[in-house]
Simulated assay, not measured.
Amino acid sequence: MNSVLSTALEGTVRIMQKQQVHANNLANLSTSGFRADYLSTMEAAENAAAGEKIDSQQWSSFESGPMMQTGRSLDVAINGEGWFAVLDDKGKEAYTRAGSFMVDQAGMLKTRDGHAVLSDAGPVVLPPFERVEVGSDGRITVKPQGARENALAEIGVLKLVNPAAADISKSQDGLFRRDVPDPLPADPAIRVSSGILEGSNVNAVKEMVSFIELGRQYEMQLKTMKSMENIGASGDKLLRA
């Protein structure tokens, strides 16, 4: 009986963890380039005396999000597979699909979360400009302030990488990283579109359905624990009779 209660209790904990993951997905429904997360559980008998051990594994969906036309030159979307390379808060290379870029006061190109965007030669730094363009191959050109209309300066090429899904995973800061510390090589075959932004790949309807199903599962686990409690109480009465 204790093993049944233990299993039901672990089940409620896992259900609550799944609900937190789905809640985070819904909170990022409008976050550019966000990848939905899911929590899977794998049940395996540890031994006959100790009951069942439940392990959890979080994973991310790599499906593309919807493409939205913005007309803004620093909104950049990757066509198909691939990732933008950025620097995380520790100065290490990480990866994101969020292509809504901005330029800070020092001219550094950054994501909306403040991560420096990488080119083939390091962080992208733009001079004062009147216009900036991003080509389909990630090539960045600007028209410097005060320059003639056709006087364009090439700044660099966005570092675009294409790792296998199994080789990267999401960290708590929302960036993806390799399981090994070595940076990925750039993939010149990746193409991007300027003036377009990739949205979140979260499916709101799917998330709400999951919430309802998890709520029902949670109620079932509570009923199981309550039944075991009642059976235990009945057993105690019989022993005292």
Rank of each mutant, 00 (worst) to 15 (best):
E207P: 02
L239S: 06
P181G: 05
V161Y: 11
E229C: 04
D187C: 03
S234M: 09
E130A: 07
I231R: 02
G195D: 09
K223H: 11
P127H: 00
A233N: 14
S3Y: 08
G51P: 15
Q145P: 00
L26W: 04
L87Q: 12
A241F: 01
G33F: 04
K53S: 13
V132F: 11
D75K: 02
T224A: 15
P188T: 06
A166T: 12
V192G: 01
L74H: 02
A27H: 05
T141H: 02
S6T: 03
L152F: 04
A204R: 03
I212F: 10
Y38C: 01
S73I: 10
A98S: 15
A49S: 15
M68T: 13
E52S: 09
D236N: 12
V76Y: 03
K206N: 12
E229S: 15
Q221A: 13
R35Q: 15
A50Y: 08
I196N: 02
K110Q: 15
A8V: 08
R35P: 04
Q17V: 07
R72P: 06
G135C: 04
I168M: 12
E149I: 10
A116N: 13
G80V: 14
V209K: 09
R139S: 13
D236Q: 10
S200I: 02
L5S: 05
A186T: 02
N203K: 09
Y38A: 15
G199K: 02
D75E: 08
T12E: 14
E52D: 04
Q20I: 05
L197Y: 03
H22S: 11
M16D: 08
V21Y: 08
L9G: 11
G235L: 13
R97H: 10
L5P: 00
